[in-house]
Design a protein around this nucleic acid. Sequence first.
DNA 1: GATGAATGAGCCTTCATTCAT
DNA 2: GATGAATGAAGGCTCATTCAT
Lengths: 241, 241, 241, 241
Amino acid sequence: MAPRDRIGGRVKDRIRQHRREVAHMDDDRGGAAAKAPRKLSREARRVQLIESTIEVMARNGYARTTLTEVARQAGLSHGLVNFHFASKEGLLAETLAYLAEEYRRNWETALARAPASPAARLDAMIRADFEPSICTPTRLSAWCSFWGEAQARPVYQENCGANDDLYNSTLEQLCREITAEGGYPVDPVLIGRGLRVMLEGAWLEMMTMSRPYEREVGLRAIHACVAAFFPKHFDADGLIG
Amino acid sequence: MAPRDRIGGRVKDRIRQHRREVAHMDDDRGGAAAKAPRKLSREARRVQLIESTIEVMARNGYARTTLTEVARQAGLSHGLVNFHFASKEGLLAETLAYLAEEYRRNWETALARAPASPAARLDAMIRADFEPSICTPTRLSAWCSFWGEAQARPVYQENCGANDDLYNSTLEQLCREITAEGGYPVDPVLIGRGLRVMLEGAWLEMMTMSRPYEREVGLRAIHACVAAFFPKHFDADGLIG
Amino acid sequence: MAPRDRIGGRVKDRIRQHRREVAHMDDDRGGAAAKAPRKLSREARRVQLIESTIEVMARNGYARTTLTEVARQAGLSHGLVNFHFASKEGLLAETLAYLAEEYRRNWETALARAPASPAARLDAMIRADFEPSICTPTRLSAWCSFWGEAQARPVYQENCGANDDLYNSTLEQLCREITAEGGYPVDPVLIGRGLRVMLEGAWLEMMTMSRPYEREVGLRAIHACVAAFFPKHFDADGLIG
Amino acid sequence: MAPRDRIGGRVKDRIRQHRREVAHMDDDRGGAAAKAPRKLSREARRVQLIESTIEVMARNGYARTTLTEVARQAGLSHGLVNFHFASKEGLLAETLAYLAEEYRRNWETALARAPASPAARLDAMIRADFEPSICTPTRLSAWCSFWGEAQARPVYQENCGANDDLYNSTLEQLCREITAEGGYPVDPVLIGRGLRVMLEGAWLEMMTMSRPYEREVGLRAIHACVAAFFPKHFDADGLIG
DNA sequence: GATGAATGAGCCTTCATTCAT
DNA sequence: GATGAATGAAGGCTCATTCAT
């Protein structure tokens, strides 16, 4: 249950590094290959490989995420992956940690920027889940791969368990505050759980659908639900006021 | 390409018979192995192998669902799998079709048995998702494996797309009727979507959690949501009346 | 040469193949399948299976001549092949023996029917090789399979060595008689060998060519050669007179 | 379908190094095995593997030419074959192309070195077929394997069709020139075909015979035939003059 | 006699990992 | 640091053979 600060810290650095180093842009596959500089800092290479892993995992699924493919996606040589991550298991674990950290920072940042009122904060958390930087088809697909793969579950617990607990208790606390504020005759724990389940389901749904699920549509469904729970604070378009 | 040509050994003749007679209980997992008779009807074997596949997929994940493991789970030889399903892909496709059919029959039966009122019918559909025969850890895990694995997605669409459409439109129609009946000022389509998303999320949550999620808890969260949507028809314990 | 997408194509074919195996009666190839009577004499069944083997070997090659395919070609069940031939090796050996016997009888019959003169008898032997009953694409292809497959060579020697020796010495003897008769200043042994080589080469050529080699064309080339050897007895159209 | 996911063993680390150091001479067949350096250039390895393939195919036949056996012959691991040729089919195709190229270069070189007269050039082409570098038992057997195996036929056409056409038209043209020169009353096309068929038959015969056919004997038979066709240019020993 | 389910050895292929350069 | 050749374990598939019915 320990939050694993050592790994977490490293990952945090990596994400920053990535943002900085992302001078090479768009293009779905091979542009990275052409532009990748000969020598990059250790950390930058690791981030590059992790991002490639996410890409490959989204495209091919967990089972067919091979080191060769990851290396090709990054425009690097085959052997380099093991050089940086020691093993495939290590690469996958760090990829998951990277995603988890990214996710946590996203909603924490959203919370930090939100107004002080509980309803506004809850709205911020909900909207955070649909933010374009997090809620891309690639990211969603990679997440689903980790969820679906039974053998990834222990790794998931290790990397995401603490984050999830924090997320859940934050969500629950907000529901409690709103319930108290509005005098709603409902169980805030149950509502918190319901919201969380709905958010997860929306992510899953966005993946499973044959046509890519629109983020807006998912968000509207959630808002409709929150509005039913907390009619004084929310309506179908989200936070009132 | 397979220019094989085996003009095979005729040795070790009686050894085998003996071995088979002796090696009965070497399987540490399934009772299935011990019970399997020498020969079975085509259909019985197929079902047996499909159930073994579900079991293995739940335990090992999609990526490590190997024919050898499936065969071992069933207490049969791996060659038999290809004999009955032509290929691994065939086995997985039929497994998914089997699960999809089972799921569809479950909620259709529930609907058929429910009272005529829209609210009662909706309640029946919701409860169907949590029925013990469907909602076992093994089943849930297998479903998640199919959802999560990118390469399974086309197969999923082929086998479950129509079923899902039917399910969704049924759910939506019930929401429409209830909304009309109760004069609720909400968009029934949005509510239908929200319910579906929530049900899926609950299934996913039951899998992802470290401790097995209680079916009752999941059901209560859904009911809380429906009660918020349709307060004249539902309360936190489900259908009123 | 074919990098191969493993999930792609192919599997579908396999499944179809499988279905066909299952569904029994949609055989597109052999009327044989449909017409096969339930019970046949031992010998008739054996011939039926041998003919099917020739057919399959011509179509698929030695390496892909499987018992399953042979049985399907014959419209019989899989297990029956082993019942009649004990092993695949036995089936192949008997098939070769069958072909060898057929070949020998063909030229012996031709010889028996030919006029007494050596030149007429040689012509009969040559023409025998191109007789429609022997010189079919299927037959030729099966022969080539046996020639080409190194592992079949001992079996070939066993079944065909004596026949070949008889054939060669007969051919040689005729060449000797014609040479003497015509007073040709050539080595009859060399000519006999040359003729035999040419006949074999013609058979091979008829197989290898992309377009099926016309029997007539092959025969004309041989006749041109014999005419060069024995100008008093043969011309480009064969035997003079 | 291959949803493999190996997150591989890290055990037995130093054992291997030792083994490799010790197990040098366990191969009883090829000198190749002992000489093979750890790493070789791409092209050198490819040629080594192709030569091994020819060896194995000659010894075992097409049907029993397995990657494992080819690798063993080369003293390498079987995985390397797919690394260099992508698939078994690729290996076989490149082997055939290699043989075809070797053959073509052999007769083209012989032609280039021959005197300018058509008869001398024809003689050069004929003798080229019996040159020791080309006409070895191993080479012959490998060629026969490709000829005999029905499934190799499309590959053969692709790799050898153009070469064969060139060879045939060259042979034909020479026959035409010699015929004109000598005023022979024969059809040169027919004679060209006859020669080609005879050359092929000789190669086949050298394989099929129980005792290895002497190259000289084959050549003499061909020469006897050419002498009969073109008595002013050839006698039983070949080119006159 | 005949059928077809069942077995298992052997094959091709993939891919994580190692290591010489 | 970086590359890519090389290894070998593991997986899917084929098919000769066996055998209960």
